[in-house]
Design a protein around this nucleic acid. Sequence first.
DNA 1: GTATGAAATTTTAAGGTTGAAATATATTCG
DNA 2: CGAATATATTTCAACCTTAAAATTTCATAC
Lengths: 158, 158
Amino acid sequence: MVSAPLAAVRSGAPAKERLRLWIRILRASRLIEAVLRERLKTRFDTTLPRFDVLSALDRAPEGMAMSDISRFLLVSNGNVTGIVERLVTDGLASRTKRDGDRRTSIIKLTPQGKDAFAAMAEAHERWIDELLGNLPEDEARALAGTLKTFESNWEGGA
Amino acid sequence: MVSAPLAAVRSGAPAKERLRLWIRILRASRLIEAVLRERLKTRFDTTLPRFDVLSALDRAPEGMAMSDISRFLLVSNGNVTGIVERLVTDGLASRTKRDGDRRTSIIKLTPQGKDAFAAMAEAHERWIDELLGNLPEDEARALAGTLKTFESNWEGGA
DNA sequence: GTATGAAATTTTAAGGTTGAAATATATTCG
DNA sequence: CGAATATATTTCAACCTTAAAATTTCATAC
């Protein structure tokens, strides 16, 4: 028996299959994002990036440094500066200096920010539920598991 | 026997499961996009949006209208204007008027654009192959199938 | 043929995004 | 201490992105 060519030894789907999969992932997320963006705009007069930052802050009652936010959301440092700035202007977030290190800003939700986010999060969950509604439970679970593996493989990699 | 509460009649995974899945999809695509963006920048001195437009044009040898491009890429009309403008400036694309309708521009790759894209596409496929390398073939196929169903459900919807 | 409305595209204003340079503060170590 | 180095953040220039308004051209119906 002749051994398989080197490329075939590689585990997993062939390259073309992976490429097609990537394009599907990309299109799916863009479609969903477009819907979310539009609804956040019309119903809450806000944007997806703002929602993302609020969402990050909401899970950190003790507050987050700017760099924590950018790392968590996978966006650049400078990006977060502008978004947080507008959230602070709108009274949804606050920035304070950390004791002992004047470089670090601690960003927190204000009570108003918490309330605003709670309303958005509730709607957001309903929207996602609607958009992914056709997905059978077992597929959802399998898909989530697969993607989780990716993430842990990539973290810190690149 | 008492009938199940209305919410439980809904087919598919529960809301929280779907929400988690969506967050995973989003993070996966952002992670991949970040890698692609960085590599396109360092190795080809270009951007992801430019690559996307070149990619769309490459599959249409007879050219595309501006609105075809934006529809295909799921981005706004005005967005495409700027990107194509820069591609034309760089000599990678050309715009001509269609006979009989002076509103419509036909955008095509120049020979230089075709060559440039061919090189990028080859690298791009390798990168995706590398990034999705751990994915077993059956999971890849399942995932792609699921996502395809979504897309067809959404097309025209929203 | 002229007005009316539709279609393709561009322009505009506001905001998001990046990578790199600049700024400010902390830490380390000679 | 003081210099060099590292860390946290902001600023900057360039580009991307959207939604909405404006422009240009076409098609249709009087």
